[in-house]
Design a protein around this nucleic acid. Sequence first.
DNA 1: TAATGATATTGCAATATTACGATAGTCTAG
DNA 2: CTAGACTATCGTAATATTGCAATATCATTA
Lengths: 111, 111
Amino acid sequence: MGVTKTDLFSDVQNEIAVAAKAFAHPARVAIIQYLLKSNACINGDLVQELGLAQATISQHLRELKEIGIIQGTIEGSRVSYCINPIRWEEIKSQFNGIFNQFKVPESGNCC
Amino acid sequence: MGVTKTDLFSDVQNEIAVAAKAFAHPARVAIIQYLLKSNACINGDLVQELGLAQATISQHLRELKEIGIIQGTIEGSRVSYCINPIRWEEIKSQFNGIFNQFKVPESGNCC
DNA sequence: TAATGATATTGCAATATTACGATAGTCTAG
DNA sequence: CTAGACTATCGTAATATTGCAATATCATTA
């Protein structure tokens, strides 16, 4: 009924799902890529950069902050956002842990 | 209004968002991990493995198939699913492309 | 052929996500 | 202090996702 049954799955599986949501919307991917490029930015820049309303971007930023992949500091009347290095590495290694698990079977592909 | 404005974003950004959705639900993560372990499996196994209804699992499998990350072959009355190696590498390198873009700035962290 | 087993599809119901206007709060100029 | 700039939050509308029972398919087996 629209409710994800998180209790059926392991902690790791739920964590990966949460982390993946950071990348599961093109606007958030765009925000992350922009942060990677500029290595710090402000919300206002993003309103120019992406074509979305200020409220929408603010909402995506909050989601990314909740996931922990970005962090923000208030700078006067502005807010500077950047990648959270600790969390970034954490998520990166969670994904690499999965990606590196796959080896093409020697006996050719199964199906 | 609930509609993602895909036209605002680049192809790559949209592609990453689609790929990320494969991992954005714990059930799909669990399915992928199970496929990684068993290196081929059948739908029925998954109904035992996860606690979800058959219809629900079939739906997740279809989504993963649409994303291309898994593939299935009909084997009599059963279906064998496995990782799609080509697509797997594709998605893996898209994510690595992002993950490796981040370097902790020498001047310490910005915010 | 009929019954069985394995999957897929359909048709809801419930919740989640996306988007934005309006509004509120918080600085910084002036 | 006041006006303007920048962000966050609220309320709401529209669409998407999740989950499952019921049903449909299709191959196998009796």
